[in-house]
């Protein structure tokens, strides 16, 4: 018997206002605790797929279930509560560079606070401790009071992971998290994601360009081309030539 899925796409289509097809007939089910890697060329729809999960993009048709809840029509508070459950990591880290690492990490908790408290930066002692712990898990505790722009790219990405941890997420979406990093820091970031997947049971969805990294870290690999799912296999059945085929131009 199949366990209850954490993400489910049913016949999802996305057509942008300018007519570009973002997603076409997507049917995809992700199990809790999976480490899913999505591969495909730039513009294949990987980012769009990811952003329909936390509704940063609205699909044109179809339904998306996250943790059993239909998310395509969520608005306001309900939408923010969905996003709280779904952490997101970006290619460009998206930290607020002119403020401290601590503040950046705490900002992951912001949806738990009433507006007036967050505007006055009144964070609880417990949350400050949690921020320190989150930073410690990515081995950057000593940077707690530094300004974010003093950190290297790899360190900034790991601060972004710590920020996501503050949300206590069930899912982490990582949109090409290592595209602007060198090989060494790439490994540190991927290892952090794997650790959260294995130790905390967080479902991880990663968009990647690197076939070797996909093979090394994924439990399951999904391939996209021109907005469609063209490949979906568990890792033990994936071959490198399959993946290279996804990257062939049509």
């Amino acid at each position: 018997m199949e366990a209850k899925s954490i993400i489910e796409f049913k016949d999802v289509n996305k057509i942008y206002d300018n007519g570009t097809v973002g997603l076409k007939d997507i049917n995809l089910t992700v199990q809790p605790g999976e480490f899913l890697v999505v591969v495909g060329l730039s513009g294949a729809g990987k980012s769009t797929l990811m952003r329909t999960i936390n509704q940063m993009h609205r699909p044109s048709s179809g339904s998306v279930l996250v943790d059993g809840v239909e998310v395509t029509d969520l608005k306001g508070r309900a939408l923010r509560e969905l996003r709280r459950k779904v952490g997101m990591i970006f290619q460009n880290f998206n930290l607020v560079k002119r403020t401290t690492v601590e503040h950046n990490v705490l900002s992951g908790k912001i949806s738990y606070y009433p507006t007036w408290k967050s505007l006055l930066n009144l964070y609880t002692k417990a949350d400050k401790l949690q921020a320190a712990e989150a930073l410690d898990r990515v081995n950057l505790l000593e940077k707690l009071y530094m300004r974010a722009d003093q950190l290297s790219g790899g360190q900034q990405q790991r601060v972004a992971i710590a920020r996501t941890l503050m949300q206590d997420p069930k899912i982490i979406l990582a949109d090409e998290p290592i595209a602007s990093l060198d090989p060494l820091t790439t490994r540190a970031v991927m290892n952090d994601l794997k650790k959260l997947n294995q130790e905390d049971g967080i479902t991880v969805v990663v968009n990647l360009h690197s076939v070797p990294l996909a093979l090394e870290y994924a439990d399951r690999i999904v391939g996209m081309r021109a907005g469609q799912l063209v490949y979906d296999e568990p890792i033990n059945r994936v071959t490198e030539s399959d993946l290279n085929a996804i990257y062939q131009s049509v």
Binding site: N54, M56, L79, R80, E81, L82, R83, R84, V86, G87, M88, F90, N92, F93, N94, L95, V96, S107, G108, I110, S111, Y113, T115, S118, L119, A160, R163, Q167
Partner: peptide, 19 residues
Amino acid sequence: GPIEAMESVGANKLQVVHM
């Protein structure tokens, strides 16, 4: 970028502006 990040965390409009 940071605006997108704050939206993805579930912040409301005022919180996005502030953070």
